Amino acid sequence: MLSTAALRAHLLAARLAGPVATSREESLRSYRLFAARDPRVLIGIDPEWSWGQRDLIGLMAEKCGVSADPRHTSGQDVIDPELTLAALDAFAERIAAVAERGAPVLFGTGHPHRLIGFYAGLADALSAAGCDVLTPAQGHRVDITTRFGLRTHNLDYVRGVAFVRGADPGRPGGEPGAHTHSPLPVRTVLARAAEAGGPLPELVVGDHGWVCGAGQLGFEAIGLADTDDPALFVGEAEGSVSVVVPLDDAVRSAYYRPLTRYVLNQACLSR
């Protein structure tokens, strides 16, 4: 069993927390764009409250541990590992609750290169516990606007985790999946599930637009987010997202395996 102390040490050693790769400049740019309600940064959330850049800095300091000083404008961001650990415990509580009910759950990621393994381990455990891990709309087309223009993607699943692939296999980034912040994939999946008569998920687990898009539609959603992804933390603050775990979401995929073990231990789902 992975102890809290061992996981804290891993978070710092792997730079999942503590000083992370995300720069202060990147985060501040995201906060400015969010305050301006740029859809590229809202990623599916329609904020109820008015969020200025200073408000977002304060929120992210509270939720992640970044500097609360708006005059701090350069360098690397810092995530407080204690906040990550506390959020992982809350995340595990929601996983345990859905397992106890044997309820349907949907997993999806905009970081397939990094995070599929983390979610797949949870999906396997929930499936073994009797939950229906949903996979609607496989192969369905999703057109996503990117900085390179409109790109066609197809929905796919690996071990119960949804993501999108570039429709052109010759396009770089098309395999094993595309990085996206868009809420369109989860909206498509949920719409197709509803059209088919269900079931619909009682919990959506993921990141980026998968969490924000589902939470905005009224589904319980939990996930992971970096310091330059304020939308998830705004959703949590406003109540449309249940739990957000602050961490660097772009380190090596193997570094997330201890987090899977920890969550399953905390949820009493370890085998």
Rank of each mutant, 00 (worst) to 15 (best):
F107R: 02
S74V: 08
C268T: 00
G218Q: 06
H208W: 10
L12A: 00
G75D: 05
F163C: 11
I45M: 03
I144S: 13
S270P: 00
P81H: 00
L184S: 04
F118H: 12
Y262M: 02
Y119I: 06
S240L: 13
P185F: 02
V241A: 10
L217H: 02
A14K: 09
T227D: 04
H10L: 10
F219Q: 01
Y255E: 15
T227Q: 02
E175Y: 15
D168K: 11
C268W: 00
A68R: 12
R101A: 12
A61E: 05
L106H: 03
H10D: 12
A267M: 07
P183A: 00
E220Y: 08
F233A: 01
R101N: 07
G149P: 11
A193V: 06
F91A: 06
S50L: 13
V133G: 06
E238G: 09
V142M: 07
A68S: 15
F118M: 14
L106W: 04
V263K: 00
R37E: 02
P112L: 11
R192W: 11
R147G: 14
E195N: 10
P19F: 11
H153R: 05
V211M: 11
L28K: 14
H140A: 14
D143V: 15
T4E: 15
P112Q: 05
L33M: 06
A36H: 05
A237L: 14
V263H: 01
F219M: 00
A96F: 04
V186W: 10
R15H: 09
